[in-house]
């Protein structure tokens, strides 16, 4: 099953990857091979196999509802490329009207 170039572009957009034409071509080939492999797996009868929700045989890992103060704000913001008024500053995300 060969992925179309539109499908590859869509996946690249969702993953925020900026692919060159050569990379796009390679991704199409490799992703198609992965999908083919899953097509092959689909031939197995899994009717009696419970879905794997987690690889560990562990459930109910919980913590008591107790709070403790957050990190000092200077530390929180120290690696931010830009900040203002105690907040992280990013390029505007909602388009202007």
């Amino acid at each position: 099953m060969r992925l179309t170039s539109e499908e590859v572009d869509h996946i690249a957009l969702l993953s925020r990857l900026d692919l060159s034409p050569a990379e796009r071509e390679r991704a199409a080939t490799e992703l198609s091979q992965i999908l083919d492999h899953f097509e092959q797996l689909k031939q197995l009868d899994t009717a009696d196999v419970p879905p794997t929700e987690h690889v560990l045989p562990v459930v109910n890992v919980l913590r008591a509802d107790e709070s403790r103060p957050g990190l000092p704000r200077e530390g929180v913001l120290q690696n931010a490329p830009e900040h203002a008024g105690g907040m992280f500053q990013v390029p505007r995300v909602v388009e202007a009207e």
């Binding site: 919980l62 509802d65 403790r68 103060p69 957050g70 929180v76 913001l77 008024g85 105690g86």
Partner: peptide, 30 residues
């Protein structure tokens, strides 16, 4: 364990988990 408060000075109730730092591990509140 960061406090669940509706009003607080910006970015004071935060830690590596709720800031999404790589390697931090979430644990569910009972």
């Amino acid at each position: 364990a960061c406090p669940n408060e509706a009003v607080a000075p910006p970015n004071t109730n935060v830690c590596p988990v709720c800031l999404g730092f790589p390697g931090s591990l979430p644990v569910l509140n009972a």
